[in-house]
Amino acid sequence: MQAFVARAVPLVAALTLAACATTPPAPVFSQDALPDAVKVPAGHRVAMETVGVGEITYECRAKAQAAGSFEWAFVGPKADLQNRAGAKVGTYFGPPATWAADDGSRVTGAQLAVAPASAGNLPLQLVKANPATGAGALVGVAYIQRVATRGGVAPASACDAGTAGRREIVKYQADYILWKPV
Rank of each mutant, 00 (worst) to 15 (best):
A158I: 09
A174I: 05
Y172K: 10
F93K: 15
A117E: 06
P95W: 09
H44C: 13
R45N: 08
R167Q: 15
K171Q: 10
W72P: 02
T23Q: 15
P25I: 01
A142F: 07
S157D: 15
A13K: 11
V51N: 03
G104D: 09
R61Q: 08
L17S: 11
V46C: 08
R150H: 10
P35C: 09
A117Q: 09
A113Q: 13
A113T: 10
S105T: 12
K78H: 13
T98F: 04
A73N: 07
D80G: 05
T57P: 00
V170S: 06
W99G: 01
C20V: 13
G140K: 12
V107Q: 05
T98I: 03
A154G: 02
G54M: 03
A110P: 00
E71C: 02
P27F: 00
A47D: 07
V114H: 05
G136Y: 04
A154P: 02
E168Q: 15
D160I: 03
P35V: 10
F70I: 01
N83L: 05
K180F: 07
D32I: 07
V139F: 04
E59P: 01
W179N: 06
N121H: 12
A62K: 13
I169Q: 09
V170L: 04
V89A: 10
F4N: 03
K128A: 14
V28E: 04
T91K: 10
D36G: 05
E71L: 12
R166M: 11
A154H: 08
F70L: 04
E55I: 14
A156W: 01
L81N: 04
A67H: 01
N130Q: 14
R61D: 00
G152M: 12
W72E: 02
V170H: 08
C159K: 07
A129G: 01
N83S: 05
A85V: 12
V75M: 03
K180G: 03
P123K: 13
A174V: 07
Q145C: 04
L178G: 09
C159P: 05
A142Q: 14
E168A: 12
A19V: 12
A129C: 08
K63G: 00
A97F: 06
G104C: 06
I177D: 11
A79G: 11
A19R: 14
T16M: 12
D32Q: 14
G54C: 03
A100R: 15
A101P: 00
R7F: 00
Y176D: 10
A174Y: 06
D32M: 06
R150G: 02
D32H: 13
